[in-house]
Design a binder for these strands. Structure first.
Lengths: 107, 107
DNA sequence: CCGTATCCGTGAGGATACTG
DNA sequence: CAGTATCCTCACGGATACGG
C-alpha cells in the first residue's frame, strides 16, 4: 500500500542532476569518458567522474579498463540499467508535456 | 532526437527529495498541512512549506484558504499534477525492482 | 492549528589546474 | 585520453522559535 517507500528508494538512486542523463548517454552507445562528457551539456569532468563511480556502485554501469597505450576505459550499461528505460521514457514524456504547458501559459 | 532535453526539464521540476512524495500525499487525498506532514516521514514543516510554494508556482497544486476560525488551508492537485501519475508509477515500479535486486545480492 | 522566520551545517555541484 | 586535486559557492535541508 505504501507507495512512498519504493518511490523513495528510486529517488535515492537516481537523485541529483546528472545520473539519469549519464545513463541515457551510455545507453545511447557512448562508452568513453570524453564521449559521455560531450553528450551532456554543462557537466564537468569532476562531476562525471564522481557520478560514474556512484552508478557503478549501484550496479547500473560497468567499468572496463583496456590495457592499451594510453589506457582506454569503457563504460557499458548493465542489465539492471535497462530496467530504468520505462522510467526514463516516462520522464521524457512528462518533460515534453510540461514544456508544452509552460509555453502555452506564457502565450 | 534529443531525449536529454525533456528529461532535464522534468528533473528540474521534480528535483529534490520531497516534491514527488508531496504530490503523492496530496493525490492520496491529504489536503491539510498537518496531514501531508504526517504522511511523509522525515519531512520538516519548513521544507514542506517551501516545497508547497514551489509546487504551487509550477502549477502542480492549488492552495485554497478558507476563512474559518482558525483559518484552514487546503492543498489540492491540479489537472497538471494528474499527468505526473505515470511517472510516479514508473518510479514506484523501479524502486520495487531495485529493492528486490539489492536484497537478492546481499543474500 | 497552520504555517513563516531565522540561524546554521553539510553536501551537491562548479571552475580551474594538474597528473599518468 | 581519463581522470584527480583543490578551492569555492550556494541551495538543500535540519532545529528552533515565533506569529496569525
Amino acid at each position: 500500500m505504501n507507495i512512498l517507500l519504493p518511490v523513495r528508494d528510486a529517488l535515492d538512486v537516481i537523485n541529483g542532476k546528472w545520473k539519469l542523463q549519464i545513463i541515457i548517454a551510455i545507453n545511447n552507445g557512448n562508452k568513453r569518458f570524453k564521449d559521455i562528457e560531450r553528450q551532456i551539456p554543462g557537466i564537468t569532468a569532476r562531476m562525471l567522474s564522481k557520478e560514474l563511480k556512484d552508478l557503478e556502485s549501484h550496479q547500473l554501469i560497468k567499468r572496463t579498463v583496456y590495457d592499451t597505450l594510453p589506457v582506454s576505459v569503457e563504460y557499458t550499461p548493465t542489465p539492471h540499467a535497462a530496467t530504468l528505460m520505462p522510467l526514463i521514457e516516462a520522464l521524457k514524456e512528462w518533460g515534453t508535456l510540461h514544456r508544452k504547458k509552460i509555453l502555452k501559459d506564457k502565450a
